[in-house]
Each structure stands twice: as C-alpha cells, then as structure tokens.
Design a protein around this nucleic acid. Structure first.
Lengths: 351, 351
DNA sequence: AGTTAGCACTCCAAACTAACGGGTGCTAAA
DNA sequence: TTTAGCACCCGTTAGTTTGGAGTGCTAACT
C-alpha cells in the first residue's frame, strides 16, 4: 500500500473512531509514522484536491468525503473478523429448530448489538408469494378467526364477530368459495381476483359487503411491506446525534419509510451493496450496507445495517458478509442433507 | 376557584405550553389578572412552601412539582374536548368491519398523532387465554406451518422444515396429539402440560426433540407480552429532549421495557390511572396516563399515553377518556344488538 | 526531487467579562 | 390584605481574549 493510501486509511480509521476531524500531527502522534507531519500535510492536500478528503473550515483537520469513504471501502479496509460474532452466530445456528426467518431475525439482533447500529431485515416483496391455504377457525359462538397462509409460511389472520349481520355459515361458505377460487393465487393478483369473485359472494351470503371488505383488508395487509428493524435505540449512542437532534430525526424518518429503505438496499445482483450518504441527498448522512440472503426454497431477502456515514465499514461489512455466508451455508447444508436422503430413499425403493 | 388555585392552574398551563419556568410578571402579561405581580409572587411563595411549585434556581420562575401536577390533574384541569378527535374516532368506529383489536390500534394511532406523544396498547396478559385450535398446514413438500389460535382470536404460527429429521406424518400426528391434549388449556399451563406430554411424543415420533422444542418455543411466544407502541418518533418533537438527549434515552429505555410499562399502568380497578414522574425514581421525567378498556367478550386491556412529565394532562386525559368511552359504547352496542337478535330468534322458534 | 524544519497565519473552542433582564423577597405605605 | 418600590440574584447572551490544533508556504536538507 502506497503512502497516500496509508494516510487516507489512517484518517478514515481515526475519524470513524473519534468522530473528530483529523490533523497531521494527531496522525503522527497516534500511529508512529516514519515521515514528518509536513509530508503528511502535503499528502493530505493532494488527497483533498483529488476529492477524498474535506475540511470543515480553512484550518481544521480533514474529514473523509463520500468519495474518500468509497475508496476506503473498496480498497483500504481490513477484512478480519473477530471471534465474538462468530461464536454468537454459531450459537444461533446450532439451535437446529429455527426456521430461516427466525435465524435471520436473531442474527440481525446480534449484528445490531455488535455494531451499535440499526439492522433491518427486508423480506422478499410479498407480491410473488402464493396463497396456499385459507382456513376458518371458530373460537367462540360470537367470533371466528380466518387464517391465511402463503407458500413461504407467512401467516395473516382476521377475526370476525359473528352475529346479526354475519353468520358462521356465511363465513364458512365464503371461505370455502375463496379457497376454491384463490388458492395458488399470488398476492399481487389477490385483489383483482377478489373483485371478480365479488358478485358470487354477494349472491351467496347475507353480510357480503362486510365480509368482502374484511377479506380485502386482510389481503392488503399481506401485500404490505415485511420489514423489521432492530436496535433503533442504538443510534442514540452515536456521538453525531448527541449534539444535533435534527440529524437523528432524518435518519429515523428514513427508517420509518419502507420505500426509502427498499430504495437504498441493493437491487442489482451484487451480494453486497454499500450505499454511502451523498451530500446532495435528503439522506445525506445515512449509509447503508446491505446484503442479499439466499436460502433454498425461499425468495431472496435482504439484510442491511443502517447508520451515520461515519460508520465502521470494515467491521460492518465483514460482519454482514460473515453472517450472510454462514446463514446460507447452514441452510444449503440442510437442503443438501435432504436431497441426499431423498436419493437414498429412491435407491431403496428401486431395489 | 380561589386565587391560589387560579394561579397554580395558570402556571401549570403556561409551563405545559412553553416548557419555560413561569414568573409573576409573565403570568400577569399573558393572562390579564386583576391583582399585582407582588400578590402573585406571594401566592407563588406559599405554593412553593406547600410543595406545589419548584424553582430551578434562587431567582427564576416557578415550575410545577410532581405534587403540583397531581393537584392540577385532580382539581384544576379543564375537561373540554375538541371536535377533531371526535370526528377522527367516529370515522374509525364507522368502519364497521373492524374487530376490537383493530379499532383500538387505530384509535391509539390517532391519540398519538393528536397529542404528539407515544401511545401504547397493552393487551390483556396472555396467560388466561385458552388455546382453541392447533392446525397444521402443508405449504410445500419441504415445509409446513403450524397455526395456533386462542379464544381471543390471537394467532401464532411456526413453520417447520420437513425433511430428514422430521416427516410430515410426524408433524401431523404430533399436532393431532397436541390438539387432543391441549385444546382448552390456558397459555400459562401450556408449558407444564407440554412437559407432561413429552414422553408421549417421544414414543410416537422420530424427530421428537426438535418438534418438542419448536412447539415449546411457539408457546413461549404466546406468553410474551402483547404490547404495541405508536408514535415513538413524536418524542423527538418535545422541547425537553432537543437539548438533553439523555432524558430521551431514559424514556425510550422505559418504552423498551414491557415490565416497566406494565408496572406503571393501572392495576387497580380505576378506569383511569395517572402516573406522574416522581423525582426519586429512575423514570423521574416520565408520566403515563392509562385507561382500562373493556370490550364484551374480551379480557380487559389497557391503553396508555406516555410522555415527559410536562405533558398536556387536560388534553391527554380528556382524549383518552373519550376514546375509551366511545370504543366501549361501540362494542357494547354491537353486543346488545346481538343479544336482541338472539332473543328475537328464540321468540320466533317458540311460536 | 522528495522530505522536513520553521514560521506566519487561520479559526474554532473554551474561558473570561460585562451587561441585561426576568425573576425574586422584603419593606413600608395604601 | 394588597401593592408599589427597591435591592438583589443569577442565568443568558454577547463580546473579548487566549490557547491550541490545524494549515500552507518557503527554504534548507537529504
């Protein structure tokens, strides 16, 4: 690594650690370099001219620019990973009972805990899932619960008050009808199909409008974004927000906007997408490291870590890579075992 | 209302509005009182001696003490209620489709929105609920989802990966067994009963330990606190937190602690419980107004509004009272209609 | 030619100062 | 009992000073 890179790396490292602009002397004091502060200053100057560093005012230390972070992330960051997260993740994976969703959820909690940042799980967009079952379960003489399940094991439910307007039988026959007509339908087609079925329902059932509305509502809930956040409160620990609460508002408003989050987590085919806050943007100080998670038998999902631009990219990226890798390996292995077993079964039957 | 009370009321009102200590002159300027500032000062002094007011330093305006707020809440607050919240709540209630849970949830969102505070729904403690149904729904050749429903229409689910260790049949028979043995069991007895059943399962099923674990885990999830928060982000708008982020941390940590929340919302039989932050407490600056919600056919739940001690009690209390009243009236009415209808039916059959 | 010591210069942050003003309590008169 | 008047308190704000961490430039040194 050439001298300029070393200096850039150290500046970014130091700034990530302290959240303070870094000066030439500090750098020298902290990391015994074998060239003088003047040399460092020269290098810093060219780094600034080239757009990797910025000054907060004419005579202050330097701060990495967005471009500087990018370069750091792409070329300079160290890739080690510490033992603690390994242990923790392995502990989770060793509890064999867990479904993929649960494993991912728990892993994200660990990620959030160990980075002091917010982690998010973006489920696959629901629209492609198919409804596989629709059941009605009477729970008292006054009410019944309808349970809807998709082919990924996602469950929605809706409780009906049975009574004057709606009879148990009505709900039953409605469910029967929907079951016949809707199983196998993908979530995105659910609402249009429902519209087509509407006349049938109104022929059949007394309280049809209410039932219809209720079902429709439940289907809409299906389509809503499946997104979980962990460790929101961790943000309060970040020094950038202790002064300036408005920055905190910005990042929290982003976390409240599923669209924004979907927007900034990887769409392309990359395994890992790194979004570094750009100055021109509404979310100028927000960085997002996101990774695609592929589990056999599931649609691809994403997990991501969200934090201020000054986040410990080296750590965050290596952690998230590790976590995703381990999760994928884990479930591939399970999948393989299954297949092998199945083949054995076939062999067996053949003989 | 005597003069002292008037003055105390105005001080509390003004402080709630401005979050600034209130002085005698300001009071005079803002609300044309017909006695002099000196008189006000005298009254303030006795109010302070009696413990209703506090000074932040020797010569500053007064701030209500905890006792002052209490007195205000009990005796001085105005009880009007404005039209906007009425309209909003009525809009919600008019969507007849909604179940109680949904109505409560939406009402709380409105409450949070209109008070700029956090509102919470504390479901009834789950332990009394009874399991009414346990179903297994195959969703692919590799997985199946078990769905559990309680007598209040609460649904939990757990997805199993079918395969080497677990067969569909195993899950089926396990569910069948549990269905026979566990329907009607209350949540709190679920775990002990499971333990009793354990030997049966291990006799019956190959992957029994995994299945057993999974079921157990789901039951534990049942027992976990059912609690929703709305409008967390609203807290950032409160002026007390713009300076002092540590206060914000305190209140957020409280919101993250279901135990603390349960602790500070009404246990006794009162319809409304008002907790005002006490200085000696860890949560010194947190006030909670909570109300019991009774809906026919449901266990009692609570809704509450959480905010800094300086909250607009008059508004919050009247809103929450209104909301709870309306919700209760709404569902009682539905219930009555049902009963009437049923009686009519009986009449009918008799003739 | 690249490196570095030296130096003048910049500007923020922290510390100090002064003035202001909103607040108090007390006293004495109405 | 109320209130005008007054001395006093102290936090806030604005202005000033100072110190220090930082810069860039130049000239001397490898």
């Amino acid at each position: 690594m050439n001298r300029r890179d070393i200096i850039l790396k150290l500046i970014v490292d130091h700034f990530i650690k302290t959240a303070q602009p870094v000066g030439s002397q500090t750098l020298l004091d902290e990391y015994r370099l074998d060239y003088s502060s003047a040399t460092i200053r020269n290098e810093m100057n060219t780094l600034e001219v080239d757009g990797y560093l910025e000054k907060t005012h004419t005579s202050s230390g330097r701060v990495p620019s967005s471009k500087g972070y990018r370069y750091y992330v792409d070329n300079l960051r160290e890739k080690g990973i510490d033992e603690e997260i390994k242990n923790r993740i392995q502990t989770v994976l060793n509890q064999k009972v867990q479904s993929a969703d649960e494993v991912i959820k728990e892993s994200c909690e660990i990620l959030s805990h160990m980075t002091n940042l917010v982690s998010i799980v973006l489920g696959p967009t629901a629209s492609e899932e198919k409804l596989v079952s629709l059941q009605i379960i009477p729970i008292s003489d006054k009410s019944a619960t309808a349970v809807f399940v998709t082919d990924t094991g996602y469950v929605e439910n809706k409780t009906f008050n049975i009574g004057e307007k709606i009879k148990v039988d009505d709900v039953q026959s409605c469910v029967k009808l929907l079951n016949e007509r809707l199983t196998g339908t993908s979530i995105s087609e659910l609402v249009p199909k429902m519209q087509a079925i509407k006349p049938l329902i109104s022929d059949l059932i007394i309280g049809h409008d209410i039932l219809y509305q209720a079902m429709l509502e439940t289907f809409l809930r299906f389509a809503s974004d499946r997104l979980s956040l962990y460790g929101r409160e961790k943000l309060l620990e970040q020094p950038e927000y202790s002064k300036d609460i408005s920055k905190l508002k910005k990042i929290l408003s982003m976390l409240d906007s599923p669209e924004a989050l979907r927007n900034f987590t990887g769409h392309d085919n990359a395994e890992i997408t790194i979004r570094i806050g750009e100055d021109d943007n509404q979310y100028d100080d927000v960085s997002i490291v996101s990774a695609k998670v592929k589990v056999p038998g599931h649609k691809d999902g994403n997990i991501a870590i969200v934090g201020p631009r000054r986040m410990d990219y080296a750590k965050v990226i290596s952690y998230i890579e590790y976590v995703v890798d381990e999760i994928e390996k884990h479930f591939e292995k399970i999948d393989d075992d299954e297949n092998k077993k199945e083949e054995e079964n076939k062999e067996w039957k053949k003989n």
